[in-house]
Design a protein around this nucleic acid. Structure first.
Lengths: 233, 233
DNA sequence: ACAAAAGTGTTTTTACTACACCCATGT
DNA sequence: ACATGGGTGTAGTAAAAACACTTTTGT
């Protein structure tokens, strides 16, 4: 190794994930009680292993807790204040994840004490995890506004009223159902099924599912998206 | 230190900055030839020191090259693929910076071989720095679309036509000057000065400056949507 | 028959786009 | 007096917001 590299300090590298879930009524975050401070709630986290990419590590750690794969995961921000972790200097790359609470429920690991918390009733969190959560909420709002990312939080089949409730929860507001459904359907990303939801309302709402191909395409093109500049300057 | 921490691997932590500048005509990126591979152009970068925050480190490294302080700096993304740096595994936190080329010119460090490159004529870059640049351009476009961030790239006093040229350069397009100035002025962030620019055009364009107080306020509220937590910490 | 939620259409308001002429000044 | 870039206004169009009634079905 070159000298240039040899003299440098090395740092512990952690990954912490803000795991969002939606239970049909409100937005939740999954927190755990872990090793260091058994008293304090914290984000699910773990250490980077030598041959992993950051994203692989975040996915692995999420899997350890939830046994879920193919979860929506996005890098949020990297936190590195010298004293953020009082035990040892650690750089933490925060990710946020969107999971479907129903999928999760069956698979939760018993190794961890984990619980869903409402966004509006969060406990005090370890280290700077509170900041991470605040930032994740902002990012989720930001992202969901431009992009139909919300599907990630719902089951495969869902109804428009369910989707509206999710968006209501994300933005802590109440959308007009007529405008909402017009807008969502205008993306042309939803496929209407013949089946109706039973049990919840008398009339029953039609189920929809995401057109995966189109959704994938939109996700990709979103990454290249150059906002029509005149429109949003 | 707790055992839990002791067994963990540690990693080298680098910071790399995409430094944008505007010379009145086109958008540029500042690149250097540095240590490891003297042949290859790369982003300006350096190592995290033990008592620095990430942002402090990025600012310090930027200062080493440009002698500029109070530069707009925003964390972009963290790159950590196991083989991104073939010499030794290194995690790199990328920042992007907006500097005013005129300020810079006088202060450039001779320690580095540095040169401004047009966005449309970039050389092959070291490691994954090309990816970092691509992402930075997207972020800049994205951000500038919603937010008058462009001011950061101009001198204190600037004219509307100058600002339009900057936005033309960012989006590689040509805005309609009537719509552009209406939109910019509607933000109510610009203060018109009595002075006119001389020498460039016959009529001369009025100088404007940013209303710092309002700009600060807007920046703060804008950060409710954008990944730049430092401001909200 | 009625309660509860689902579904749909129209009007108003607002924001964006496109476009053309006069102005001030240096040569 | 003319050439160069600076500055402004208006009409047409498209998107967003506001708003209320009818439909379905389980009880």
């Amino acid at each position: 190794m070159l000298d240039l590299y040899k003299e440098q300090h090395a740092y512990l590298l952690a990954l912490d994930s803000i795991i969002f879930g939606f239970d049909g009524e409100s937005l939740k975050i999954l927190l755990v009680k872990r090793g260091v401070e058994e008293q304090t709630w914290s984000l699910m986290g773990g250490w980077l292993q030598p041959r992993e990419s950051l994203e692989q590590a975040a996915a692995r750690i999420l899997f350890e807790l939830t046994s879920l794969t193919d979860v929506y995961l996005e890098q949020l921000y990297t936190f590195g204040d010298p004293d953020r972790d009082p035990i040892s200097r650690t750089i933490s790359v925060a990710y946020f994840a969107l999971v479907n609470v129903a999928d999760y429920a069956s698979k939760i690991s018993e190794t961890y004490q984990a619980r869903w918390f409402s966004l509006y009733d969060l406990p005090v969190l370890l280290f700077d995890h509170g900041q991470m959560v605040d930032l994740a909420i902002k990012r989720l709002r930001y992202k969901a506004a431009q992009h139909p990312i919300g599907f990630e939080l719902l089951p495969e089949k869902f109804t428009i009223p369910q989707l509206k409730k999710l968006y209501d929860a994300i933005y802590n507001t109440e959308f007009d159902k007529r405008n909402f459904s017009r807008k969502i359907l205008s993306t042309d990303l939803l496929i209407k099924l013949d089946e109706k939801q039973k049990g919840f309302s008398k009339k029953g709402a039609y189920y929809y599912q995401v057109d995966k191909a189109k959704y994938q395409q939109q996700t990709d093109s979103f990454l290249n998206f150059i906002p029509n500049p005149e429109a949003s300057l």
